[in-house]
Design a protein around this nucleic acid. Structure first.
Lengths: 205, 205
DNA sequence: CCTAATACAATGCAAACGCATTGCATCCTT
DNA sequence: AAGGATGCAATGCGTTTGCATTGTATTAGG
């Protein structure tokens, strides 16, 4: 019965505005009026789609995290069937191979993290790797090691956990400008090399 | 000529109030009036010691970072002269051995990080390990490895960089409640073990 | 065509904000 | 004792905030 519009598109536009504002002037710079202005719509429209500021930011964070995950999963899926080592490398590198959009999203997520801590309802969305992901990664490490002929020592699960920590930490460093992408990449390569150990027959000293 | 008071104590009290407010309700919850109330003083006093909100938060961040570093350096200094491996372990563990106060400070620093990105004047205070620290740590790693009789492969500088990333990343995880202290500790131990390699004569597989 | 529901747009409002100003009490200096 | 600098308390101001309310245009169903 009403005017028919694309709700999804409206929300996406508003959230986009929130991202832009938060990145350029901090989360404190995100107000209903400014979001409306940035999106080029009226304040009434913002209120129509989000009952409160809180909900707006919440959805913006939610969409940012989803978008980031989607990008990572896409680049992982792109490698297709390959050796465990290649897949592992792609997984970890995907986290730090941030295009401009990903940097924006990461920065936004980081900006929200501060507020997040005092708002338990928002926390879960930023939780670290789940059990499933760690188990999968541990499997990759095990396979890659045995493929290299490198000795297994157990603790691959911990190795996986640490590797994700390293990758995300480097990703954050890139996003906030504390590291260049190349520096992060070579660090991650170094980590993976140490992680998988020497190839069969390779000298170690 | 004026009333004589302990300026340092006043500022410390105000900054303490900022920390408390920021942790419990986010940085947005830090206002001049609330800081005054939390510190149990008048708003006039807050203004007297800090010309603007910005300066207040800036000093609060500065003091938080200093306090954190002081704690870490203290626990490192406590080990005195010891083997490189012991010193190295202490250095890295110091970052994740957070007492309640350190957790508060870390959380605060994290809360400010969001705003920081849009305020370049504040950024440097949160910069990662400097060259000096990395060189020192790389030296420890080299020494610890040779003490173990573990082969050197070069790249100790990168190993040092990665190790600090792991430690700080774990520290952050603890502070925001994504990991327990024990879990972080065993992960860090695992990392160090892999980092230093097998002891002479030890089986690897 | 009529009606009701929807999608806004416009405006209003109380609260809260940072900061400026003012006034007074205190204490050292002379 | 006088005087001036300082430490603060109190209050006021103009702006901005999130949100509520109200009004209006649009369109599907009857």
């Amino acid at each position: 019965m009403p005017k028919v519009v694309d709700h999804e598109q409206r929300r996406a536009r508003l959230v986009e505005a929130v991202w832009a504002l938060a990145i350029q002037s901090g989360l404190e710079g995100v107000t209903l009026r400014r979001v409306a202005a940035e999106a080029g719509v009226s304040m009434g429209q913002v209120q129509h789609y989000y009952p409160s500021m809180r909900e707006l930011v919440r959805d913006a964070l939610d969409r940012a995290v989803r978008a980031l995950n989607a990008k990572i999963e896409a680049s992982i899926g792109a490698v297709g069937a390959a050796s465990p080592e290649v897949v592992l490398r792609e997984c970890l590198h995907a986290v730090i191979a941030l295009d401009d959009e990903s940097v924006r999203l990461t920065r936004f997520a980081l900006a929200v993290l501060g507020r997040t801590m005092s708002d338990p309802a928002m926390t879960p969305v930023l939780a670290p790797g789940d059990d499933e992901l760690l188990a999968f990664t541990a499997g990759l490490i095990t396979a890659a090691r045995s493929e290299r002929g490198s000795p297994l020592r157990g603790g691959e699960r911990m190795d996986a956990d640490i590797s994700w920590s390293v990758a995300t930490s480097l990703g954050v460093d890139i996003a906030i400008g504390h590291r260049s992408a190349e520096a992060a990449r070579s660090l991650l390569d170094h980590h993976i090399e140490r992680l998988l150990g020497p190839r069969r027959g390779e000298e170690t000293g």
